[in-house]
Amino acid sequence: MDQEHIVKSFDQDLNQIESLIIEMGGLVEAQITDAATALKRRDVELGGKVISGDKRIDALESDIDQAVVRILAQRQPMAQDLRAVVVAPKIASNLERIGDYAKNIAKRTSVLAKTEPIGSSAGTIKRMCALVQDMVKDVLNAYVSRNAETADDVRMRDEEVDQMHNTLFRELLTYMMEDPRAISPCMHLLFIAKNVERMGDHTTSIAEQVHYMVSGEIFDEERPKSDTTSTTFIEPDAAE
């Protein structure tokens, strides 16, 4: 609905929340890309930049929380406004978690930079990150354009990330079995892969929030999940 509120400043308040989320989303996207790039290029400096960049994201989250509290107290929003206001802190909190994972990847980059690269895992992770970053971008577009379909589409794309994670998980397990010296970097890579997978989950959560915000319906159907790592078992002798 494009109609303006009778109270103009209400619109301004809502726009402020929206632009805060967009700013936050933009930062998070950049963090994901930078963290992946730093990992791939073994660029500790860029990793440091990512670590320090997370502070800004945390600050934005608290800005959004404050704006939401103020708008709830002042305007008592109803219907779509209410939904927009209520999902904002949830989206912000999801974005903040994604930012944290990016930071964590960057931290691990400084350790991995000192070891030999393990196969093509860094490249795979970079592709996963690119996928997640794309999802974040699309879900934010869906948020801004109030498009539930785009959000639903993003939600379905997480399956791909999960599958990449599965593959990487198996690959890294195999590396560790082959060579115990690789365990340390592999463990870090495993955690990083897990982080990226979690980023995808948070993105789908954002997509669900956007869907609710636009349509007023809460998702009750299960999302297709392909993360099978919890049940993956590789026989030790299979590596021989």
Binding site: M1, Q3, I6, V7, M78, A79, L82, S215, G216
Partner: peptide, 19 residues
């Protein structure tokens, strides 16, 4: 009605838009 009304006029009215 107050979280997700189905009619646009309801929406406009309860959210305080000109309707």
């Amino acid at each position: 009605i107050f979280t997700a009304p189905s009619d646009e006029r309801t929406e406009s009215y309860i959210t305080g838009r000109i309707g």
